[in-house]
């Protein structure tokens, strides 16, 4: 029984911690590529549709024949925000900057932004995608501002 002010409540003694095993066997090439600093995604060989995030089945023609193609790393800033109130599982992090950038082929991608100009972002800025590895070795990616 919680005895602070307010109405009486029973605090549950059972806690639930969720950790998911995310299946990536059909798109592991993307994460493998990241480890080598490369950005690749899927292109449907039946209709030519390029998808990001990569997917093994084509959302346009529903075919399942895809090849891996280079995404490029040059991007233009479409929109962004500075996240100051962060969720429970990010409380260890400093506030971060999230942006959506448009790549050369028109694909868009969401990632954190780093670099010297991060305090002075504006729509239309040039960004570059870079692969990163977390302290426990998990691959991810960020945008970096032009110097």
């Amino acid at each position: 029984m919680k005895l602070d002010s307010g109405p009486p409540t029973l605090q549950s003694r059972r806690t639930l911690s969720l950790r998911f095993n995310l299946p990536i066997s059909k798109t592991h090439q993307f994460w493998d590529g990241l480890r080598e600093g490369k950005f690749v995604t899927t292109r449907c060989t039946d209709c030519g549709e390029v998808s990001f995030p990569p997917q093994a089945d084509c959302p346009r023609c529903m075919g399942s024949n895809v090849e891996w193609v280079d995404m490029g790393t040059d991007a233009e800033l479409v929109t962004f925000t500075y996240v100051l109130v962060t969720p429970t599982s990010f409380v260890q992090n400093d506030p971060y900057v999230v942006a959506i950038g448009r790549l050369g082929q028109g694909l868009k991608i969401l990632a954190w932004v780093e670099g010297s100009q991060v305090e002075r972002l504006k729509v239309g800025d040039k960004l570059r995608l870079e692969a990163r590895s977390s302290s426990d070795g998990a691959p991810y990616y960020v945008f970096v501002t032009a110097p």
């Binding site: 925000t81 996240v83 962060t86 969720p87 599982s89 999230v98 959506i100 990632a111 954190w112 991810y140």
Partner: peptide, 13 residues
Amino acid sequence: ENYGMTFPAYYAL
């Protein structure tokens, strides 16, 4: 997973 988006952050975009 990697970017910690929040509901306010989505609308801020």
